[in-house]
Design a protein around this nucleic acid. Structure first.
Lengths: 249, 249
DNA sequence: AGACTGTATTGACGTGGATCAAAACGGCAC
DNA sequence: GTGCCGTTTTGATCCACGTCAATACAGTCT
């Protein structure tokens, strides 16, 4: 299983590392939650290899054969779908501890593109082996089901956002969501760097980049958020939340 | 396990039936795909009970404890999510052979409402038992993963629709999607009854009911579709598809 | 340092779909 | 049948966001 230590053809080097889930600080966020020491070791074996990606590198592309899931170990990703006519929809942003690639299970090929938005590292989880192991470890099976289900619930939230919210509500919801996810990972809830461009935010939120920019400016004017390019500081989280619960008109 | 044959308190009668998946005509669409005779029988035991619902009855509601998945056996459902301020987003329409309730796995409670849009019947699939059985039958485990993943891919499509398409494109995509799903079930691809109102279509597509109505009228005028209330006849499927691939402008 | 390029901000204007309103239609109860 | 009510259609108006365009800013290369 160990990979050739031959001349690295591309920057996408594949590294074999022998400490995986058991040593991983993301434990609770990932597949290994609640696994016993013994089972954890078996998961370690499964998730033996990692892959580093540079900013803007693709982890996989739509129509690539599906072979593995990927757990983000460090860094930041986006997933997007392209229509034939060139329209792009960003379907999600993934950070540390989140799992990528589950869309590929149903058709044995990936149905979207996954791109690193900064230099990143993922754990490779060969899917056939994951199924095999979760066939043996019930807790792992259940964890995996929960991870997939969580993704379904997340998608519901995005549909709600795209279907019923106006521009500033969408951006507020987006910022609060990021804040919450950063908090879970031990980072500041109120101050962070956006890894994506205004255009990518807009695509995710179903808005044009100019609208995103204007909404940021307006948040700045009203003292909700301090915005300086990609650097964000939330000044009034309650105010942002209040935006969400307001009736139309 | 058998239910009281006592005076039916409510129209939501629970019926014990002993032919389940093995006799079910929906085989290929559902969880049982590719299972051998022996394994099929074990799935039969699991999916032993059904539940009938009248039009407008809830199958489950948001925050109900999650205990089972439901396979639509006959009828038609919608799922929706409500915001505190009363805004509603229809997140999907489910027909024969489709599985409901997977959103509940992650939080042990349902995250949306499921309502029958016509008199319907579902197969009850107790989730703990499904996990138990799919722990033993690898093909079942894999089928279930595929079903969940298919749902993720479907959600991607809805996001694309809500994020990048204009009103008539959304409606065209919606009609073509229904057409395709009816076809899979052996019904006409070009002629069908809509089970939902304009308002529900609009909620699903992120549009107001008036906009949906106008789009239907326009399709009628341009000879793409014959519309008579809820009765739809697709006259020019290619024309509808062409709408989707057009650039904005 | 200067030049180049991708990204962000801001303004002026146009438009697709929301909103408000009224009328038509269909199904159902009586 | 008649009346009632939920749904659909259609019209008139409004406005949030898209579009087009110019400028500002930041990072990178040389």
């Amino acid at each position: 299983m160990s990979k050739l230590p031959a001349p690295a053809l591309t920057p996408l080097s594949i590294v074999t590392i022998k400490l995986a889930c058991s040593q991983c600080s993301l434990n609770e966020l990932c597949l290994s939650e609640g696994l016993s020491g013994d089972d954890l070791e078996r998961l370690d074996v499964l998730v033996g290899t990692r892959r580093k990606l540079r900013r803007n590198q693709h982890l996989y592309r739509a129509d690539d054969p599906f072979e593995a899931l990927y757990a983000v170990r460090t860094g930041f990703f986006k997933t997007d779908v392209l229509l034939e006519d060139g329209r792009e929809q960003v379907t999600g942003f993934q950070m540390t501890g989140e799992i990528l690639g589950m869309d590929g299970i149903s058709g044995d090929k990936h149905s979207c593109n996954a791109v690193a938005l900064e230099d990143s590292e993922v754990c490779i989880i060969p899917f056939a082996e994951l199924e095999h192991l979760s066939h043996e470890i019930r807790a792992l099976q259940h964890n995996f089901h929960k991870v997939m289900s969580r993704e379904l619930v997340r998608d519901q939230g995005v549909m709600m956002l795209l279907g019923t919210m106006r521009a500033e509500e969408r951006l507020a919801a987006f910022l609060l969501n990021l804040s919450q996810r950063f908090t879970l990972r031990g980072y500041s809830a109120v101050e962070f760097h956006l890894r994506m461009t205004r255009e990518e935010i807009g695509s995710y939120l179903g808005l044009k980049l100019e609208t995103v920019s204007r909404a940021f400016s307006h948040f700045q004017e009203t003292g909700l958020v301090a915005v300086q390019q990609k650097h964000i500081r939330i000044l009034d989280a309650a105010g942002l939340k209040a935006l969400l619960n307001h009736q139309r008109h």
